[in-house]
């Protein structure tokens, strides 16, 4: 029965061989060494013809079993090798995921644009149209039609860059209101917001700028009231400084409105308790407003017996400075990237 011994021996030898194989290629070689045409099993099979007939089935069965065992060894080893290959790949491809990613520089709009659009969108949502106009204006639209005749003392309040006696750099966006009223052929209701650059003859310092951005709002209709102004102001204050804000109106004076008010918003920093931002008062002055003076309506062809309106105007820089705690207005115009880029 040395045939069977031989089979056992082959099995043993094959196991030893297969278990140490490290590559798929070597595994194939080992496979053909034992199971190939000229392999060890072929040799053993040759011995079968010399066996007695009755022994042949048993021998075939045993041989086949031995073959299956070796194939199993090969499959097992194949899995091991494949796993090792993948592991090796993983190891070689492992990176430091904490290294910084590729930089994509996203740009941004200017903070004044951001705040301006925020305010525009609030008013668009309330049904206002955004109107713009020229920065070089005529005296008549910038002053005279706004109840500021040539000898009016309040002209001192806004020192003006004149170009000629009759043309100037607009000192506010109110002339856009005049233009809109004049252009309204039916002299019907108006609901507009007028943003834009304006100019005053001021020396530039931390709180003054010869150029700045203003937003003015005008509503004219037969039933527009000061309570409407107050409601609109509260919406504006909440949108800009948060839902919890309250407003306070104080008497003031502007030639184009009557009554005129200064509008304070409860301090967003201390919630009205008093801090250094609101100078301990709990209130911050944010804008001026009022009911449109009849002279202004009439100067632009509106019948003041029929119509009444309100107007409000704010400086975008001031709003942005309060909102973001900026203490120098010049920062808006020097455009230091480190400053501008903060406002995404």
């Amino acid at each position: 029965m040395e045939v069977y011994e031989k089979l056992d021996q082959i099995k043993l030898e094959a196991e030893g061989h297969i278990r140490v194989v490290k590559t798929l290629h070597a595994l194939n070689e080992v496979k053909s060494k034992y199971l190939g045409k000229k392999g060890s099993f072929s040799e053993v099979m040759k011995l079968m013809k010399d066996l007695p007939k009755e022994d042949k089935p048993h021998f075939g069965q045993v041989t086949n079993e031995a073959k299956q065992v070796i194939l199993k060894y090969i499959d097992d080893q194949k899995l091991l090798i494949e796993e090792a290959i993948v592991n090796e790949q993983l190891a070689s491809e492992t990176i430091d995921v904490t290294m910084p990613g590729k930089k994509f520089e996203t740009g941004n709009v200017h903070l004044l644009t951001k705040v301006r659009e925020e305010i525009e969108d609030l008013f668009i949502g309330m049904g206002y149209e955004v109107m713009e106009g020229p920065e070089i204006e005529i005296d008549e639209y910038n002053f005279e039609k706004l109840n500021l005749p040539k000898d009016h003392p309040a002209r001192d309040m806004q020192d003006t860059f004149y170009i000629t006696d009759e043309t100037l750099l607009r000192t506010h966006t109110s002339p856009v209101q005049v233009r809109t009223m004049l252009d309204n052929d039916e002299k019907g209701p108006i609901k507009i917001i007028c943003p834009g650059k304006v100019y005053r003859r001021d020396d530039d310092d931390a709180t003054h700028s010869h150029q700045f951005m203003q937003i003015e709002v005008l509503v004219v209709d037969t039933n527009t009231s000061m309570a409407d102004l107050k409601g609109t102001l509260l919406e504006t204050a909440k949108k800009l400084f948060g839902e919890k804000r309250e407003i306070r109106l104080r008497p003031s004076y502007f030639p184009f409105t009557e009554p005129s008010v200064e509008v304070d918003v409860s301090c967003h920093n201390c919630n009205g308790k008093g801090c250094n931002i609101c100078k301990g008062t709990g209130w911050i002055e944010i804008l001026g407003a009022g009911m449109v003076n009849d002279n202004v309506l009439e100067a632009s062809g509106y019948d003041s017996k029929k119509y009444q309106g309100f107007a409000l105007g704010m400086g975008v820089e001031r709003i942005a400075m309060l909102k973001y705690g900026i203490n120098d207005i010049r920062l808006f115009y020097t455009n230091d990237i480190r400053f501008n880029k903060q406002f995404k």
């Binding site: 309330m126 206002y128 149209e129 409407d228 107050k230 409601g231």
Partner: peptide
């Protein structure tokens, strides 16, 4: 006192828009 005034919004119906 303006604090006694109610808070309302304009009754003018209009469409808000950008050009």
């Amino acid at each position: 006192g303006y604090d006694k005034l109610p808070l309302t919004l304009p009754k003018t119906v209009s469409m808000g828009k950008l050009s």
